[in-house]
Design a binder for these strands. Sequence first.
DNA 1: TGCACATGCCAACAAAAGTTAGCAGGTGCT
DNA 2: AGCACCTGCTAACTTTTGTTGGCATGTGCA
Lengths: 117, 117
Amino acid sequence: MSRAAPTGDDLVRVLATLANPHRLRVVAALVRERNYVSRLARELGISRALLQVHLRKLETAGLVSAHLELSEDGKAMKFYEVNQFVFTLTPESIAVAAQTLAVPDLVERDGEEGSRS
Amino acid sequence: MSRAAPTGDDLVRVLATLANPHRLRVVAALVRERNYVSRLARELGISRALLQVHLRKLETAGLVSAHLELSEDGKAMKFYEVNQFVFTLTPESIAVAAQTLAVPDLVERDGEEGSRS
DNA sequence: TGCACATGCCAACAAAAGTTAGCAGGTGCT
DNA sequence: AGCACCTGCTAACTTTTGTTGGCATGTGCA
């Protein structure tokens, strides 16, 4: 699926999410096969708690998705798989995205405006 | 210029660099026109010290380049401009990049080989 | 000389991200 | 009951990143 230009903030979120070795490996592993967290943690050699954090970030960024499944023997397992996505980074695409960045909220001034004598 | 598949670590560096609103704005501004740091800082409304840090990161990642120039009136000015680049992010390209990630250095054990699996 | 402009650097702090360890719950099997 | 799996959560800590402020250098010009 191709993709309309993301907003600047979405772009930042996606890039920040992908800018991590663990998460790259997670994506790579899920490209090979969908998997559930405990097994994935074992395969990647990291703790389950840590993997969960990374998976949550990937999911929040919309790069992977999860759904609960009951295995034959009745255990609840959370399977993850990668979503299809394409992001193209060029100076120009970045310039476009930068236009839709949230404005940095300057410090809230407390009512007082320069009207003092 | 197109670009061969980056190593996983290079990719991480580039993504981490781009995953920041300030730096996106810097790139966007430099796409419009090359600029020197003091003026760029004024235009972006951020401090010079802060801008320098971000510029250094961008340069380290190879996304911009700088060169000193002497203005007519003899002042040394450091001009920055964007480099051309294209990065395409897909699950597959990430899977490829992930193969070339530096191995997480487990604690160095002396001589003893531990390749049990 | 003093002001305006350019550069560089660094120490110190604030904020965000990464990581670990431990707790809770659930199922099925012997 | 006890064990081996599965899930979820959170508090606390370490590491990294972001940000500010100050001080250093240099130039040209009124």
